[in-house]
Nucleic acid binder design. Structure first.
Length: 677
DNA sequence: GAGCACTGC
């Protein structure tokens, strides 16, 4: 493997660096103001500028290893731009797994280059884009967005370089792009690929792209370069004996650090919201009685937290106060908090898993991988040297898997299989995945798509139904429900339902005002179930002019409702594109529910004598979630959109149905059951 | 009477 290290001179390089004066932007973590200093770049990546440009010229695929803070995300696209990679009218794309990263990186690079965002430098994420068809040279975008563009132009002819950033995170769409790129580069020799990864484990990427089957490395078409990160030294400490309760241990460790160690904030990694809240509460109580001048301020952070509360972890604490940030996995990659000197790591993470027998996704607490634990440790050494307290033994660490199982190997693949089919990849099992998903998951996906009529008897995409379904930015069952609204003449209402079930937590239920929140919710509720209730909420939100105050008063989640409006608008655009009518069901609720059944027929359940439910398809035991308006009403037959597994399997977004609808609307699916009776 | 890692279109 050709491994360029800093300091090695690339032979025969014909690339010059003529831009010595560059701009560096420094983010001040406490006042969030941006100060711009004119000075020579001192980012680690700068020392490798010539080498990177040389390698991009010589090799079609370049793998750049560099940790957070090396500057690769913001600098490499600029180097390529200066070196003339966009002079042919094509763009440089920088692909991110997260929306915020795409928008903030674009903003930062536009500032550094002294141009207006949306002109030479732009971005493209769902619901938001700022770029100019003719002017934009550097485009930051989410992986999902580039994947969408591939459906329109499979050869990505608008681009001269594709930089896939954060490739080590192995998000589904990043993985798919990595696989598809392998096909593209065979047809487009002028296209250059940069794979940027924060972990040293890049051999899989290297082997994946390298066509050189000889032992002569000079014939490689892939090169690897390492860009040293700007991290400070970190001390790592393990437990001598395993602990049986990492919650208590993390509290104990945080207090010990606070009493004995020098100034610097603490970051604790736990697995879920409950754990986070428990530790915050205990730390807050225990810190009152500490005999120390320096105070301790415990703050929670997790995805479900209000944006306002989330922002508190970035604020400067009061004088003589040490912050302890208690976090879920959100702080591992998604959120970076400066000033952390101590990291406490429980060594576990909550991950999504897909159960092929039940066809349901669930969340499970699992031991972290080594890569993940190292990433967490890195959070301690960003601004000064740090200390990491791992709440497990060194022996336990050695037994862990090197890397987290990639998302594509543990997800419901229905959407992905559908979209790959739309891209002309007929045999999914033979697609060149960086790591292949289990065959059973692919088979499950094919079966579902066939039952929805998206695939024909030969496994080909149906036209126009399957084609349209692949284009819709929603999962296949939801998309089927939307497309069938033409038949049931209820597009107007079904669009609202689709938007509302695509966002989370419409109803807010604070512990302090449970009763009032329940009362407010009852005002919107109807006996047919959650879907019609959602329509009532959505209409009331619009009637009250999308007021945040009104939401607050009625215990509704303002941000979720705004998001539902965005989703609905986006779906309406697809309705126009497909020439689908947006008719109202005019109060015919049966028609509306039948339309829901036409997409979600595989998720029907029947009430049992003991009050539980069982799925019609495979007899899995389920319960109605207590947040559903049908909770305790126990209708005989229901249809549901989602299952969450906690202590039991709970159905969320549930509506009452008539059993005849199932055989009427999905005879192919329920025929066998019928004849058995 | 529960309480949901993190993303993406």
């Amino acid at each position: 493997m050709a491994f360029w290290r800093p300091g090695t001179v690339a032979p025969g390089s014909n690339v010059t660096t003529d831009n010595d004066d560059e701009t560096i932007i420094i983010y001040n973590p406490y006042d969030n103001k941006i100060s711009i200093n004119q000075q020579k770049i001192n980012l680690p990546v700068y020392r490798n500028k010539i080498h990177i440009l040389y390698l991009v010229e010589k090799y079609q695929v370049v793998i750049v290893v560099g940790q957070t803070g090396s500057g690769k995300t913001t600098q490499i696209p600029q180097y390529l731009y200066e070196a003339g990679w966009t002079s042919n009218g094509k763009m440089i794309a920088c692909i991110q797994p997260r929306r915020v990263a795409a928008t903030t990186m674009a903003t930062r690079v536009a500032k550094e280059m002294g141009v207006n965002l949306g002109l030479e430098v732009g971005y493209s994420v769902r619901f938001d884009e700022k770029y100019d068809e003719n002017l934009t040279k550097i485009k930051y975008m989410t992986d999902g967005m580039l994947f969408r563009e591939m459906m329109i132009d499979p050869l990505l002819r608008n681009y001269s370089v594709i930089m896939v950033d954060e490739a080590h995170e192995r998000s589904i769409y990043t993985d798919l792009i990595i696989g598809l790129i392998k096909k593209i580069i065979k047809k487009r020799e002028d296209l250059k690929i940069i794979i940027a990864s924060a972990t040293l484990d890049v051999e899989s990427f290297y082997n994946f792209y390298n066509n050189n089957r000889t032992n002569d490395n000079s014939k490689d078409n892939v090169a690897v370069i390492s860009v040293e990160g700007r991290n400070y030294p970190i001390d790592i400490m393990y437990l001598k004996e395993p602990c049986d309760n990492y919650i208590n241990k993390s509290i104990e460790t945080a207090l010990k650090i606070h009493m004995n160690e020098e100034q610097g904030d603490i970051l604790i990694f736990l697995t879920g919201k409950d754990e986070v809240n428990e530790v915050v509460q205990e730390l807050t109580e225990k810190s009152y009685n500490l005999n120390k001048k320096m105070k301790l301020l415990a703050l929670p952070i997790y995805s479900g937290l209000d944006t306002e509360d989330q922002m508190k972890v970035f604020e400067k604490p009061p004088l003589n106060t040490r912050k302890v940030i208690v976090a879920t996995n959100i702080a591992e990659a998604s959120i970076t908090i400066d000033g952390i000197k101590y990291v406490i790591d429980c060594g576990f993470v909550k991950l999504k898993a897909f159960n092929p027998t039940t066809g349901m996704e669930n969340l499970m607490v699992m031991p972290c991988s080594k890569a993940s634990i190292q990433q967490r440790s890195g959070r301690a050494g960003r601004t000064s040297s740090g200390k990491v307290y791992r709440l497990f033994t060194e022996e336990a660490f050695k037994t862990l898997a090197d890397n987290t199982v990639s998302e594509i190997q543990r997800s419901n693949l229905a959407t992905i299989v559908l979209q790959l089919k739309a891209l002309g990849i007929e045999n999914i099992l033979r697609f060149n995945f960086l790591t292949s998903p289990p065959a059973q998951l692919v088979v499950n996906a094919l079966e579902l798509l066939y039952s929805l009529n998206a695939l024909d008897d030969y496994g080909r995409l149906t036209d126009p139904f399957g084609m349209r379904l692949a284009e819709f930015p929603v999962e296949p069952m939801l998309g089927t429900m939307l497309l069938n609204s033409q038949k049931f003449e209820c597009g107007k209402e079904i669009l609202t339902i689709a938007a509302m079930i695509s966002v989370e937590n419409i109803f807010i239920c604070p512990n302090s005002a449970k009763h009032e929140a329940d009362e407010e919710k009852r005002k919107f509720s109807v006996e047919e179930g959650d879907h019609i209730t959602y329509i009532n909420v959505y209409h009331a939100f619009l009637e009250n002019k999308k007021s945040s105050k009104w939401c607050y008063k009625h215990f509704l989640n303002y941000h979720s409702l705004l998001q539902a409006v965005s989703v609905r608008n986006q779906l309406v655009k697809y309705f126009h594109r497909f020439n689908l009518p947006i008719k109202s069901c005019e109060g015919d609720i049966d028609r509306l529910r039948k339309c829901i059944v036409s997409g979600f027929f595989s998720q029907a359940a029947k009430l049992q004598i003991d009050g539980s439910y069982r799925t019609v398809r495979n007899d899995v035991e389920l319960h109605i979630h207590p947040t559903s308006v049908l909770f305790k009403r126990s209708p005989k037959w229901v249809i549901f959109n989602q299952v969450v597994q906690t202590t039991k399997y709970y159905m969320r977004s549930v509506s009452v149905i008539e059993p005849e609808w199932l055989s009427e609307l999905a005879p192919h699916f329920y025929k066998i059951k019928e004849t058995k009776k």
